[in-house]
Write a protein that binds this DNA or RNA. Structure first.
Ligand SMILES: [Zn+2]
Ligand SMILES: [Zn+2]
Ligand SMILES: [Zn+2]
Ligand SMILES: [Zn+2]
Lengths: 137, 137
DNA sequence: ATAAACCTTAGAGTTAACACCAAGGTCAAG
DNA sequence: CTTGACCTTGGTGTTAACTCTAAGGTTTAT
């Protein structure tokens, strides 16, 4: 299988596949005489692993770690794998909390502004941001 | 006030102030003979506005838009201001939803892995990512 | 035999919000 | 008069995950 075929099969770009190769996520199984990358079922499976890891939120770096473990599983423990997962989970939760804080502030601001066509001279959003005490009132 | 003083007052770096100037968020009120940036109360207030906007989640670009409106409020409407706010709110909510999806998947994965010291040969996290049908069972 | 479709490498561009650095000018204190 | 603290410009580096370009070689179909 050449790079274009694999890309079409997976719904990614050939650039992406070359990028993953550069970043040690996926190497072709061989090269043709003319230097074209060649892939087979093993690579297809591996890309599916990568894409699934991406779906659940792992970064490419984290996915790469998981792949390292996957290639010789018996040299690694469940502890490691779960560690990576929990660490990511922490990060995701922290980011959610931060965004929820934004969400709260923004919806509070939006609720108080009439949103009408009249001039913004007394817009409560602007005044809330101007006031030193922008959180209350 | 020179740039260092203003920076100390606000708890930001002088680099940040110069960066904001480059990006049209805050210009000094004047320059000294020797070319030093000079700021006064107006700039202090404006920086506080910027920092508050940042606190509620606005990007610098969005903050810049808000500042444009603020400088001549009567040429703009509440509608515009609320529009920016609601648009941001949408974005934040979308991002939260995406992260919550990750959170769900990750916690499901973590829950099923024993996390023990034994080899990862049968780690349910890895097998879940390997299986085409990684979401169920 | 030639055009279309495919492939190669190497490198630059994108976005956000700065941090850091070099080389040099300025200003107050001792 | 010389440190040391401060300031200037202009530039590069950071992170993530690609995307795009240039300049060229290969394959396949007509
Ligand atoms: Zn209004
Ligand atoms: Zn309003
Ligand atoms: Zn286990
Ligand atoms: Zn496990």
């Amino acid at each position: 299988m050449k790079i274009g075929e694999l890309a079409r099969l997976l719904g990614v770009s050939t650039d992406t596949l070359r990028y993953y190769e550069q970043h040690n996520l996926l190497s072709p199984s061989a090269r043709s005489e003319s230097g074209y990358r060649l892939y087979d079922q093993t690579q297809l499976k591996q890309m599916q692993f990568i894409l699934r890891a991406k779906e659940v939120g792992f970064s490419l770096k984290e996915t790469s770690e998981l792949l390292q473990i996957k290639v010789d599983k018996n040299q690694h423990s469940c502890e490691e794998v779960k560690g990576i997962t929990l660490q990511k989970l922490e990060l995701v939760r922290a980011r959610i909390a931060e965004l929820q804080c934004f969400e709260k502030s923004l919806s509070k601001l939006a609720k108080r502004c009439c949103g009408g066509q009249e001039s913004a001279d007394f817009c409560s959003i602007l005044t809330a941001l101007e006031d030193v005490d922008g959180t209350h009132k």
